[in-house]
Design a protein around this nucleic acid. Structure first.
Lengths: 107, 107
DNA sequence: TGTGAATGTGAAGAACTCTTCACATACTAG
DNA sequence: CTAGTATGTGAAGAGTTCTTCACATTCACA
């Protein structure tokens, strides 16, 4: 096994592991968004959004370009969508496993 | 969209986003491992391994039970495997996208 | 029951990440 | 050119996560 792969994976996961950044990636995986459109959807300060976008740019998960005077962001690789779904499936599965026990635990 | 879902996803991703914990999950997704078997494969202190296992237990990603005097760990939900593959696919895709440009950049 | 190997825990400091704020830059329209 | 809106950056402090270390617990079995 290539040793630095764990590092790279860990970095990727930590990069995505932030509520605002997940929100951004989910919005972008529906369609490209201008920064001001993201701002309408996500409740954070403009400069904070900018910071989070910078983090995603640094890891090359998103790309940006200027269109009609606004900066438009896009997902750089389509695999991101499947990845987010995959995370959701784990959560669903964990939640299901927990609720199997809840009847016993809550009585 | 359910608001706390981003939180939960972010937490999950941050939990998995650690080299040792990824290594553990990959080993466990091949087959169950006793703690001392994990120790042979991963180069960290026993107590550190124990800490990382505790983190994974807390988020219910793994389960443990004692078998023949040793503590054996197992993946709790099978979706973890697909999730890790999914992460690898993004990395591969990002790497491919980068190397498309390398010829220009390195000359 | 006593010893040793295996596993786990708590606490502390180092290292890292987040948010915020003040300011910088970019571009558009008047 | 000038004002105004949109976007980005740097730096500081608060908060969080990691690693380490000393020690606790568990269990097998002599």
């Amino acid at each position: 096994m290539p040793v630095p792969l764990y590092q790279a994976k860990a970095e990727l996961l930590r990069t995505v592991g932030h509520p605002a950044r997940i929100r951004i990636l989910e919005l972008l995986s529906e369609r490209d968004h201008a920064v001001h459109e993201l701002l309408e959807q996500i409740d954070i300060e403009p400069s904070n959004l900018s910071q989070q976008l910078a983090v995603l740019r640094r890891t090359a998960l998103v790309t940006s370009h200027r269109r009609d005077g606004a900066v438009v962001y896009a997902i750089s690789v389509p695999e991101v969508r499947e990845f987010l779904l995959s995370a959701r499936r784990i959560l669903a599965s964990l939640a299901a496993a927990q609720s199997d026990f809840e009847p016993e635990l809550t009585r």
